[in-house]
């Protein structure tokens, strides 16, 4: 993935590059807002990572300018600004995702992959399949190996989200935000408990297991 990182702190930029490049991404760094805007406008990037507090041009204005010029490269704000209204401001300015520093690399990586895939997503499919599991988004039914599986509404949405991201790791916070609409992390293991229930329904008694746990990172639905 070609990533444009707009970040004025050289150490932070170096760390990010060191964290992302081993995962096969090409990282270009823009050290200030104006440089970032010019590079982003020139195109050729799959994803933009934008800090909010930037010299010469702040991140919000930068992205608003890009969106105003019909440049829709997926953008993620990576910023120390974590106030209640800050995320909303970032999304309103045209951001596709918002991650507050400090962050875990697994979290950033999972979100970048999701962003990149979202922009390249095929037209809406009504049936999501993996191995012998099939989810019908219209009739809201699930079956595995021809057997119908009863799911509660949230379990259905959770499975749907995992299937839309099949082969990718989705993190606990991504699930909290996107499936439950929670923009905070509860102390209770909500996601784990739901995954465990879902597993009991779609993996128990079937081969191979489809839901995989990545300790400290999240979950992935995949054949292997």
């Amino acid at each position: 993935m070609r990533i444009l990182l707009i970040e004025d702190d050289p150490k932070a930029a170096a760390n990010l590059r060191a964290g992302l490049e081993p995962e096969g991404h090409q990282v270009t760094v823009a050290p200030d807002g104006r440089d970032g805007l010019l590079s982003a406008a020139a195109g050729g990037f799959d994803v933009l990572i934008i800090d909010r507090m930037l010299p010469l041009l702040d991140g919000l204005t930068l992205l608003r300018t890009l969106r105003g010029a019909s440049i829709h490269t997926p953008a993620l704000f990576l910023t120390a600004m974590g106030g209640l209204d800050d995320r909303l401001e970032g999304l309103r300015a045209g951001g596709d995702d918002y991650l507050v520093k400090p962050f875990a690399f697994e979290e950033l990586s999972a979100r970048l992959i999701a962003l990149n895939r979202r922009s390249a997503a095929p037209p809406k499919r009504t049936k999501l399949k993996i191995a012998d599991l099939e989810l019908d988004r219209l009739s809201r039914t699930v079956q595995r190996a021809g057997r119908k599986i009863e799911l509660k509404p949230k379990e259905f949405e959770l499975l749907e989200y995992l299937l839309l991201h099949q082969g990718e790791v989705v993190t606990r916070t991504m699930l909290l935000e996107d499936v439950w609409g929670f923009h905070f992390v509860p102390q209770t293991v909500i996601v784990e408990a739901h995954i465990s229930r879902l597993r009991g329904k779609i993996d128990h008694g079937f081969v191979p297991p489809l839901i995989h746990t990545y300790r400290g990172a999240g979950y992935k639905i995949d054949v292997a």
Binding site: D9, A12, A18, M53, A80, G83, K101, A104, F105
Partner: peptide, 21 residues
């Protein structure tokens, strides 16, 4: 508050990145 938040988060972020790397 924003400054403290930024000035405290940024080094913490670098420290966290450093530890992860």
């Amino acid at each position: 508050t924003n400054d403290i938040s930024h000035d405290l988060r940024s080094p913490l972020a670098r420290l966290r990145e450093h530890l992860e790397l």
